[in-house]
Design a protein around this nucleic acid. Sequence first.
RNA 1: GCCUCCAUAGCUCAGCUGGAUAGAGCACCGGUUUUCUAAACCGUAGGUCACAGGUUCGAAUCCUGUUGGGGGUACCA
Length: 590
Amino acid sequence: MNFIVAGAVKAVKELYGQDIAEDVINLQETRKEFEGQVTIVVFPVVRFSKKSPEETGNDIGTFLQQNVAEVVGFNVVKGFLNLSIAESYWVNLFNDTLLASDFLMAKPNGQKVMVEYSSPNTNKPLHLGHVRNNLLGYSVSELLKADGYEVIKTNLVNDRGIHICKSMLAWQKWGNGETPESTGLKGDKLVGNYYVVFDKEYKKEINALVADGQTEEEAKKNAPLIKEAQQMLLQWEQGDAAVVGLWEKMNGWVYSGFDVTYKKLGVDFDKYYYESNTYLLGKDTIEEGLAKGVFFKKEDGSVWIDLTADGLDQKLVLRSDGTSVYITQDLGTAQMKYDDFKMDKSIYVVGNEQDYHFKVLFLILEKLGKSWAKGLYHLSYGMVDLPSGKMKSREGTVVDADDLIAEMVDTAKQKTEELGKTNDFTEAEKTELYDTIGLGALKYFLLKVEPKKRLLFDPAESIDFQGNTGPFIQYTHARIKSLLSRAAYQFAQADYANIQLTSTELDMIMLLAKYPTEISNAAKAYSPAFIANYLYEVAKLFNKFYHEVPPIIKEEDTAVKQHRLNICKITADVIKSGMTILGIRVPERM
RNA sequence: GCCUCCAUAGCUCAGCUGGAUAGAGCACCGGUUUUCUAAACCGUAGGUCACAGGUUCGAAUCCUGUUGGGGGUACCA
């Protein structure tokens, strides 16, 4: 649409003798109720024309109609100049751009980006909050690929620390040698159970101590169990063979459990980092910061940074005993990741409870003069809340990832069987279809919401399969595919000599043409939700088109038939491409 | 206390680089199947865009304040 902007700039020059910048010409789609396809908002031009909005609109409209071949008509409503663009323009756009073989291909931009997501603790199974993280991380990775980046997906596994020692200790004390094999439980579930056991027993001890007259705070510190867990962590750090052995065994269980969930979710990683390897990193960075005067040392030996000038607080970066805190290792890990990959950008997909942490982290790296610090971005997303409030693993008020997935697949199965759509499917085809639909519904449900917004999930109300949902879009795709195969579709450009586009067809072409722009906007905002909402519009408009036109298969005019099948084909391609970005598979039939 | 994010229909969400009469889905009510898949389509109803000011030709959108809610503010991660 650049030619319209250029034409309008020229119009202002010739009509009013004024040079204006291109951004004065504000283009938008013409609203449905008015004639035309493209609208120029004339208010910003008024101060150059020194005429009323209506007169200005008429002047420019007349000029464009006379001087720009594609502009075949115009009307002015209040301050809005609505332009009618020649049908041949849209037909050419459709044939030359949308039907071109590279329409859906990513154009490499030569940049490398790392996306870190998932990053689970290895002491408990994944829940709905983690599911949101995983789907977001995966989808943003796909989105950035589609926008031309080379993407490295990483998972920084939080595999050490007091939380794992809690599970280990509880298993040692009360586990009776249980294993995933002996119980039939997934490894992460088994380990998670002992995390809950620990918490229960710990609370008992606290209550007993409080009854003995200690304050709750004291009791929390003095309970024998927590002391034992801390002792275990110390032994782990010293490399105690028995503790490390147990740690490896239980982490192994958890990993095999996670692998099952990851596979089910369809997410993967190019590179794993383990905190057990990175937790000592960052001390070099502390030295570097001290030398550069970015950090300062207090009398007790602790190291700090003063960020009060930046509107933040003083922040501890190294304990007085010389050991690391959270941010110490994150500083070191950031350096290591950069050294490993030299990426242009690095995205951290982490919940919004850590907004402050990342703000500080990035600011410190900038102050240390790291050239790559400006490429760091915290993709902060809102928590998933239940009607009862926040999910808490320790208290068992979580929606378990595996359970939820199983439930969704089961619902998909039920609904599909009710509709009697899979009577001629093989068992394998059925299994795959139910999986595709169930996960499609779940993923779309989570991804259609803007990442930073918190999300309410009510387990009592099942996720919809109708309306603005994954299955609706999947259905639209399946319907098109079946139509194309029944029509024995062959790709070819249609002959438009005698074709008059319907207004819905015109709308379809305009909407489909926006796909590449949608991708780049979504990528800039790191928001798969843009894609989800766009795909919904595409599917909705297609269904309208589908109902409006007579059966395409029976169409006798071969040019019209080819043209409509082409629209179907591009629609299916765009849906498939967009859904792939969301990590959602689309069935050929359903 | 301070910092930060959020507030749009009964519910779940779009719309936010300022543009025309604020849009969807669900739920509710009504209609469409001898024609390519009714997980679809068409229609009715539903709004003080939390509140109050300000900037502007024009504000759901930008600014300030207020209210309500989430999160953060640890020598935890």
